[in-house]
Amino acid sequence: MFGFLGPNGAGKTTTMRMIQCVSPLTSGSLEIFGLDTMSHPSEIKSHMGVVPQENNLDMDFTVYENLLVFSRYFDIPRDEAERRANELLEFVHLEDKKDTMTESLSGGMKRRLILARALINRPKMLILDEPTVGLDPQARHMIWDKLRSLKKQGVTIVLTSHYLDEIEKLCDRLVVMDYGKILVEGSPAQVIEKYVGSGIVEAEHNPELIDCLEKKEANYEVIGDLVHIYTDNPKQIAEYLTMECSLSKLSARPATLEDVFLKLTGRRLRE
């Protein structure tokens, strides 16, 4: 499972659209399954499943019909398509909604149906652009669960998300990108370790603390009213700060991908 991270406008969706053979490349080359995306789009797309950022289910059809109509675009024979549609509805727990029009599904159900639809051609590769955006925790966990089981079945999964915990939990490898360039590449643990260390101590900002940190030559960053101290041993640092700098309000926690993300791409708001 591979993750693309980056702020809005970093080029994630554009990259996804190029992988899907939808957007043309302006330079360079891109190969999927060893095939060039510009010359073999249909072959590539027949082995690929896509969960787009925006909901694009066919509103004119029911849940079941959505899967059947979609299967025709892949030239899947009717009885095979029916068998797969039933299997997939069970897989995403939508058997009861088989004959419901897609408009009346909840947000989470729509996402699950889109996932089922993306699997109708038994893809070798699944592309997900913000798969759990706007979902409640139950629905998110269910999608994660399904993605893990697909991964076990040997499907390659490519994912973009703004929810960094999602990427951290799911992905084996990731890149952080910004302005169309790759900034970092590695496993979530490697990336965290390399860029911020394994732990963080958060303390309230005050001049005494900064003096203290300067003396210790600590790796720290001032963020508004807060000071982040990056370390491999948060407990020790926290104790040291309490003793030496007579600080009381601080907390130690493990570092997350979010810290790496903000450190690399800055805190300025993006369009």
Binding site: K45, S46, N55, Y73, F74, D75
Partner: peptide
Amino acid sequence: YQKTFDAIIATPVT
């Protein structure tokens, strides 16, 4: 509005 074309071009249909 329905994004029907977007959905279809994710398949082998051009």
